[in-house]
Design a protein around this nucleic acid. Structure first.
Lengths: 288, 288
DNA sequence: CCCTCAGGTATCGCATTGCAATACTCTAGT
DNA sequence: ACTAGAGTATTGCAATGCGATACCTGAGGG
């Protein structure tokens, strides 16, 4: 139990503060405009509870029983049972066919599709990513920033992709990924510090950078170059280029990645070959 | 507005009736064990309402305003506003960065990942699908049945994939797809009739079969062959093989597809080449 | 330039609605 | 056979969410 699902926050972030952030920054202290949304009278408790139930599956890698969910969410048995009933009626939770227990339901994928259809970054990026993969023949990804992590929204497999971990919705931390460095390169140093300090800097490979000085340098280098290069930060034997995508206000909201194998590429070749393409692609997407 | 999102049911299906279905079948009348879950005392209204708000995005291809959502869901402005506030605080809805309006939020993808990690069929199928694509070099998909439609859960692009419509969560109707025929081939004729009659048999290409007699024949042929062959039913120029995946009880709960181009393949070659592989793969997944 | 309209946000009282407690059924394990 | 664990169902009371209403802002338009 408690599978190593990387860094998915059990409790989500604040709502509108993201857009503020810039003016009041300074020391990297994020000024929370609204103290805590979940004790705001506008906050609908029961939605929260229902989504907590759905989110209980984040914690597991097996079907859950009622009491599992009750334990994970901290909600009472009755409440959980009522919600499961409802969520099941609506198709958001199913019974596991063989084993007994509950699993996420099919209807979730309807919302996945909506997200992909409606998110402007994803929509703009997709054709460009396809083109990018056509030209590079390597793995191309788009990830969106969610506070300390990057969530993969589009993944285009390369020729021989074995790992099943190339799934939409997977997330990686900002602090040790090409995309994360690319994004931090577009923030003021105060915010970078804030991010680095709040991240729990877990080592994914023996080469993962975790020292603050190293990470600062990685970000600084990225800032100069205009793109990030990450070697074996998440996966051994993998090299990745990352470029940030800016929204209309100039905030880095997403990143594109290109990942190749160090068995095939030297760092220099990989960069020389692909960095210009990446930068061009990111500009086109972000209209920067 | 009201974009042609194919066949996503605005109102979802009943919960536990699916598993019953078989014993009481007969005339194709599905015996509703529980009259209507949403007037059951166990049914939590406010979850339903919240998810209706999230589902409002099914209807659109642009960001939605509060009143849009209010209109689509039929809920009052106040209620919608409170829910948007909550859903936004939780990350399930975002503000569109440029344009004004709301869009589905990133946190949705967390649940997508859960679904893919936990759904036993998807988990079992993925490695086999990868192998299948390696051998065929064509597009390979896994889709799960949801009443009258098949929802794509895994999609492995082929070499030159242009269309952005190869997204997870996309759905196609049972009645006119290789996967659908493969699934119906494993149901009794009464259920097939029920499905065919309840489907609204829209023509997707000039070659889409819509006549009941033709469709019955397609299913019958599939039943004999053990796999389905669909030519240009959804996409012009495309040929697809479909094989059903059975769960432990022998019900067809999913299907795998192999899609190729008629410019490259004759129907005969495509079948001869790939049908055995497909059947083998489906057996392995379904453990039938 | 002021008015209006559309969109978003906030407040409050009342009754709807969902939770805790409890009890019942079923299956599996010892 | 008894116990434990899982799922399901019912009920009373009060927490909680909805409707009505009002406020704020920016964008057009006369």
């Amino acid at each position: 139990m408690r599978a190593r699902t990387p860094h998915r926050p059990a409790r989500p972030a604040q709502p509108s503060t993201t857009s503020v952030a810039l003016g009041t920054a300074g020391t990297g202290q994020v000024e929370t405009t609204r103290a805590d949304p979940r004790q705001d009278p506008l906050f609908v408790q029961s939605i929260d509870r229902a989504l907590q139930v759905l989110s209980a599956f984040h914690e597991t890698s097996r079907p859950l029983t009622l009491q599992d969910i009750s334990r994970i969410t901290g909600l009472g048995r009755s409440a959980v049972q009522r919600m499961i009933f409802t969520l099941r009626a609506l198709g958001y939770i199913d019974r596991d066919p063989d084993d007994r227990g509950y699993v996420p339901g099919l209807r979730i994928l309807d919302h996945t599709l909506d997200f992909q259809r409606l998110n402007p970054v994803v929509v703009k990026a997709n054709p460009i990513l396809l083109e990018l993969r056509r030209m590079t023949r390597e793995r191309v990804d788009l990830s969106l920033r969610d506070d300390l992590r990057l969530v993969y929204a589009t993944r285009l497999q390369s020729k021989r992709e074995i790992l099943t971990s190339t799934l939409i919705g997977n997330s990686v931390p900002l602090f040790c990924t090409s995309g994360g460095w690319a994004i931090m390169a577009h923030l003021d140093q105060a915010e970078v510090e804030d991010i680095l300090h709040r991240s729990d800097r877990i080592r994914h490979t023996p080469h993962t950078l975790t020292d603050l000085r190293d990470l600062r340098r990685a970000v600084a280098e990225t800032r100069e170059r205009g793109y990030a290069v990450a070697r074996e930060q998440i996966l051994t034997g993998e090299i990745a280029l990352g470029v940030a995508i800016l929204n209309a206000q100039g905030d880095p909201v997403a990143a594109i990645h290109l990942a190749g194998s160090l068995a095939e590429w030297s760092r220099e070749d990989f960069e020389k070959q692909f960095a210009p393409l990446m930068i061009q692609a990111a500009r086109t997407i972000g209209r920067a």
